[in-house]
Nucleic acid binder design. Structure first.
Length: 510
RNA sequence: GGCCCCUUCGUCUAUCGGCUAGGACGCCAGGUUUUCAUCCUGGAAAGAGGAGUUCGAUUCUCCUAGGGGCUGCCA
């Protein structure tokens, strides 16, 4: 193939929020475009007016932006090939349907929805294979192939509703060379005369996507595997429209599967199994239903994108952590897997943990500060940076640092019951009391000074850390576990630490 | 049912005819740690089944089985 400008498109239908499978398709399109210095286009496929969902288009755009894979061109982003909503391109399609009728590759069909339902029903009851509108059945249906021309003309002049169907040839192998699957071949005998143009004046997906891809000079169609069965139909449309030379290359991506059981990942799986399936939280304005999102659950977009990239693709090396620009560099359509990939939530959490750790305390500080503020807790950024330094090794999310280290923001409200029961006794109490006195006299309240004083005390008392540490931790933090107590006390400061020791001695059981 | 696609540890996957089948997540054990987490070390864990091609098949071909997708005037 000659060097052709790479132009790819992501073409969702605005029938609801974009789920992670769709995001992955968009991501692969984005990566492919960027790697080739090409253009990533967003086209909205809203030819089915009955399935329009308010807010969906905006959601899709916001989701792509959050992921950092915003289109270069398309709905909401401008460009020279617009409009990018198919509903606004309506006048464009009809002529191509007509062209196909004229060239004998399509025909008018007057069968009503009820007619079709009846004949399908009949076939079903007879126990035969699914009824199809095809070369064997079209002769007995109401269409411009089975009816006299005069009658057809009359019906059209009359304004009777009709659709335009493709007329598939008999027994013809249609082949396409898929970039991820290699050669795929289907015989036209196994395909049906798909509707290209609906009675409401809109094209179906099949016609619209070919017409638009052609006019938008799309070079590669990267989409989900659910389109594979209709890809041969699309090849035929390019051929019949005379655009075969400009036909894009196809790449059909494996599906994202449910973590449990069978089938592709669906929007209900997430909240059923305890993970988001959507990048952003979605509020259904019709029924008030809410679906959780990765963003709201505290995931970093980089982690989410990294995880998605690896569901169905891998670089062939052992590197797993990839920044977006590294993905752009490494991504190869040829290395996309053929089999469906099951989503693994633990792995997603792990990715987030890796990204959390890779961030500096200073980068984490504003995020932690914001999280604290939401809980009504106050702390400045430098302080939050120190908290991050202490807590990030034991956190998956920013919010974990807050929940695990809440005592760094406010006095403990309650004390861990198990630690209280097991570690808090007269002896522990005595040690805490002694330590309070020692710490009161400390000039330098640094972690190392505290540690030195603490260890000296242990030596002098001839006791092990285990006898003193847990009670001390409980008194200061209310918890039985956590980071170094010396670091914690140093961070809290002398006044606060002593204050807490005093409170604990006064309030904890004797 | 028909058609198309797919099939390596529980999961994501590496392997492009020579394998003691590698890595990651998760899991288990040990070590480090006052504790928890981290970290380190180790472990269990896979080529759906059957034919064929070949000196040699996880790798190529076929069959079977299983899984998935499609089968709408939805995309």
């Amino acid at each position: 193939m000659s060097q052709r400008l790479v132009r790819v498109r992501f073409a969702p239908s605005p029938t609801g929020p974009l789920h992670m499978g769709g995001v992955r398709t968009a991501l692969y399109n984005y990566l492919f475009a960027k790697q080739h210095g090409g253009t990533f286009v967003l086209r909205v496929e809203d030819t089915d007016q009955t399935r329009f969902v308010k807010g969906a288009e905006e959601y899709i755009i916001n989701a792509l932006k959050w992921c950092g894979i915003a289109p270069d061109e398309g709905q909401g982003f401008g460009g020279d090939f617009g409009p990018y909503r198919q509903s606004e391109r309506k006048p464009l399609y009809r002529q191509f349907a007509d062209q196909l009728v004229e060239s004998g590759h399509a025909y008018y069909a007057f069968d009503t929805a009820e007619d079709l339902e009846r004949v399908r029903d009949l076939a079903k009851k007879a126990g035969t294979a699914n009824w199809q509108y095809n070369h064997v059945t079209r002769g007995s249906m109401k269409n411009s192939l089975s009816m006299p021309k005069a009658e057809v003309d009359k019906k059209i002049a009359n304004g009777d509703p009709y659709v335009i169907r493709i007329k598939l040839p008999r027994n013809e192998e249609v082949k396409l060379n898929d970039l991820v699957r290699g050669w795929v071949s289907v015989n036209t005998n196994n395909m049906d005369d798909k509707v290209l143009f609906k009675s409401d004046g809109m094209p179906t997906y099949h016609l619209a996507n070919i017409v638009d891809d052609y006019h938008m000079k799309i070079s590669h169609v990267i989409r989900g595997e659910e389109w594979l069965p209709s890809a041969p139909l699309h090849v035929l449309l390019y051929r019949y429209l005379g655009w075969e030379d400009a036909m894009p290359q196809f790449a059909h991506l494996p599906l994202l599967l449910k973590p449990d059981g069978n089938g592709k990942l669906s929007k209900r799986d997430g909240d059923r199994l305890g993970f988001p399936v959507f990048p952003l939280e979605w509020h259904n304005s019709e029924n008030g239903e809410v679906f959780s999102g990765y963003r709201e659950n505290g995931y970093f977009p980089e982690a989410f994108v990294n995880m998605l990239a690896f569901l169905g693709w891998n670089p062939g090396t052992e590197q797993e952590l990839f920044a977006l620009d590294e993905l752009i560099e490494a991504f190869r359509l040829e290395r996309v897997n053929k089999a469906g990939a099951r989503y693994d939530h633990d792995k997603t959490r792990w990715f987030n943990q890796q990204y959390l750790r890779a961030k500096s305390n200073e980068d984490l500080a504003p995020l932690l500060k914001a999280a604290a503020q939401e809980e009504g807790l106050k702390a400045d950024e430098p302080y939050c940076a120190q908290v991050a330094g202490l807590m990030k090794e034991r956190a998956f999310f920013v919010k974990d640092m807050l929940s695990e280290g809440r005592y760094l923001f406010e006095k403990p409200k309650d004390f861990d019951e198990k630690t209280l029961r097991k570690k808090w006794n007269a002896e522990a109490r005595g040690h805490v009391s002694n330590l309070k006195t020692i710490f009161e006299n400390l000039d330098s309240f640094t972690a190392s000074a505290l540690e030195a004083a603490f260890k000296e005390y242990l030596q002098q008392q001839e006791v092990g850390f285990g006898k003193v540490g847990p009670g001390f931790r409980l008194a200061v933090t209310g918890k039985g576990m956590g980071p170094s107590m010396f670091e914690i006390c140093a961070l809290l400061g002398k006044e606060e630490t002593l204050n807490r020791l005093e409170t604990a001695l006064a309030e904890l059981p004797q």
